[in-house]
Design a protein around this nucleic acid. Structure first.
Length: 534
RNA sequence: GGGCCCGUAGCUCAGCUGGAUAGAGCAGUGGACUUUUAAUCCAUUGGUCGAGAGUUCGAAUCUCUCCGGGCCUACCA
């Protein structure tokens, strides 16, 4: 195994713990209650960069910076320390002749990973590096473990994902990637808000999880002594809101699907769903094109990406092709020649595809699409007009009762989004649910369940409506050019650690003499913490 | 579930066709150095080589079992 246990008090940690006492002996609290800073690293750097040509000191300016000690170069009577804060790095120069008595010697109590503050004049060193020429410094928080190796960083993917804090504090690319994710998400919100959408929140815990073909997680509600299901989609509640009169709604939230995890799957993932009254799936397609290309350009500054070896352009317009035409083009398969589940199954088996025994017509067509078509769809492509069997919540296509007005959008060879002209005929919707129940009875445990309240809502009338759903994580994968979903989720699902490898608290028990400031031990744990401050 | 691969110091990794006391860099400790930036230089601490069993005069190295993990595949619109 390559996963380090939380070590018992090893030698390195013992040395750091001993420094706690040494700091206290010098009158320095290793964990002071609060800190002050006047400048972020970025502000301090900018201040120096703004100095006129030939001027190397910001005379009269006193800047206090704070951050984690990420590098240290000890030159004898001068020491350079690099601090990392949320805005970047700032170098601090500490010299024996500019620090108060004893403060220079106390530098040996600073280790990599500690948080300190340093105060002094912003300046430029001989080599041009913006630097705070410190006249004093203070410990803000002492770290008891060494940070990851400074040059190679933390490389083990498991530790990087399981202990993301170590990845983030050691690997700048990782920090940048998650900042980018945040910019994309806020960009999506800005885009939708600007178009008059309102953001809403709907229940995660549901009596029946519907709106998608997936198995839910089950949990137990103690107060009612009933099971609840974690939502697998946002759809049915958002459409209730359209019935209620909200014309443009979206929700950006976590959904949960009880399935395995892998390169592009995580059991909990972030979904965007939008519903627009008086819209249809073609209007939604226009909006999606605009939203994704706009957000990519704004958040990342470009609209071409290299994803899994393919160059992908998000520039508009995006290609549009029907589901049937795509199968004709990439598989030389004409679905109209195989109109029943039996004939289609026979054809796919003749071609050597391994299809699940319970698959109905829709599932079979989808299998063929996944196998033959999906890998070719690198640049954004809308696949239009799906078989009705695959889409129990979408409205029929006028003139062709076997198709629905639906698209899935593919980018980088996988599905990134899904949209319908929403089915608003309550009678038709009831029949579709009944068909789903038949599929379920035939062994498809991902088929939709009847949702009587949703039907009751539709029976009150829902305006024509275009709806859309997009897996945000997959979009982020493309925009950050990451081949795995785990690299774009801060804390991805991982196998649980077996008990004998789990850190045990007693292993990390630390003994050092109590701080002068420490009060008597509170006898009741319930009385501790939380109440103070404010 | 199937296939391939990995586990050596706190971190990043060598060593693996069996050979003596298991190495390097970083981090740590001690020392030199008042403008460095992967600082440099000198010295030095630290390892039950994932665990167990076996083969052998001798195992980090070969075999088996187990533990933990990764990748691919399968499952998963």
């Amino acid at each position: 195994m390559h996963f380090p246990e939380v070590s018992p008090m090893d030698e390195l940690m013992a040395q750091r713990v001993a420094k706690l006492d040494q700091l206290r002996a010098l009158g320095m609290d290793p964990y002071p209650t609060r800190a002050t800073r006047t400048h972020t690293a970025a502000e301090a750097n900018a201040l120096v960069d703004a100095l006129p040509e030939g001027v190397s000191e910001a005379e009269g300016v006193v800047a206090q910076v704070a951050g984690r000690v990420v590098a240290r170069r000890d030159m004898g009577k001068a020491t350079f320390i690099d601090l990392l804060d949320g805005t970047g790095r700032i170098q601090v120069l500490l010299r024996q002749n500019t620090l108060a008595e004893g403060l220079y010697d106390a530098l040996k109590l600073i280790d990599l990973g500690d948080f300190i503050s340093a105060t002094g004049m912003p300046m430029r060193t001989r080599t041009g590096q913006p630097t705070v020429g410190a006249t004093t410094w203070a410990m803000l928080s002492k770290a008891l473990h060494a940070p990851p190796e400074k040059y190679h960083g933390l490389a083990d993917p498991e530790i990087r994902q399981r202990r993301r804090y170590l990845d983030l504090l050691g690997n700048e690319e990782s920090r940048e990637r998650f900042k980018l994710r945040s910019k994309v998400v806020s960009g999506i919100r800005r885009f939708l808000d600007a178009r008059g959408f309102i953001e809403v929140e709907t229940p995660v815990l549901q009596e029946a999880a519907g709106g998608a073909a997936a198995r839910p997680f089950v949990t137990h509600y103690n107060a009612l002594d009933e099971d609840r299901f974690l939502r697998i989609s946002l759809e049915l509640h958002l459409k209730r809101l359209v019935v209620g009169g909200f014309e443009k709604v979206y929700e950006l939230g976590r959904i949960f699907r009880n399935e395995g995890f892998g390169l592009k799957y995580n059991p909990e993932f972030t979904m965007l769903e939008t519903y627009e009254a008086y819209g249809d799936y073609l209007q939604v397609a226009d909006m999606v094109e605009e939203m994704v290309s706009t957000v990519a350009s704004e958040a990342i500054g470009r609209d071409t990406f290299v994803f899994r070896g393919h160059e992908i352009s998000l520039a508009r317009p995006w290609r549009r092709i029907t589901f049937h035409d795509a199968l004709r083009q990439y598989a030389d398969l004409d679905l109209e020649a195989f109109p029943t589940a039996e004939t289609l199954r026979a054809e796919l088996e003749r071609r050597g595809l391994d299809v699940p025994p319970t698959a109905g017509y829709g599932k079979l067509a989808d299998e063929a699409m996944s196998f033959y078509v999906e890998p070719h769809l690198q640049n954004p492509t809308f696949l239009l007009d799906y078989p009705i069997e695959l889409s129990p919540l979408a409205k029929r296509k006028p003139g062709n009762p076997r198709l629905v007005e639906r698209f899935e959008v593919f980018i980088g060879g996988f599905e990134a989004g899904n949209a319908y002209t929403e089915l608003n005929d309550p009678i038709d919707q009831r029949e579709r649910f009944e068909e789903q129940l038949r599929l379920r009875a035939a062994g498809d445990d991902e088929a939709e369940l009847m949702d009587e309240d949703f039907l009751f809502a539709l029976e009150h009338g829902m305006p024509p409506c275009g709806g859309f759903g997009m897996g945000i994580d997959r979009l982020i994968m493309i925009l950050t050019e990451q081949p795995t979903i785990r690299e774009v989720i801060l804390f991805p699902q991982l196998k649980s650690l077996k008990p004998d490898t789990q850190p045990t608290p007693s292993d990390t028990a630390i003994t050092s003499s109590p701080a002068e400031t420490a009060g008597p031990t509170t006898p009741s744990p319930a009385a501790a913490g939380e109440g103070a401050g404010g």
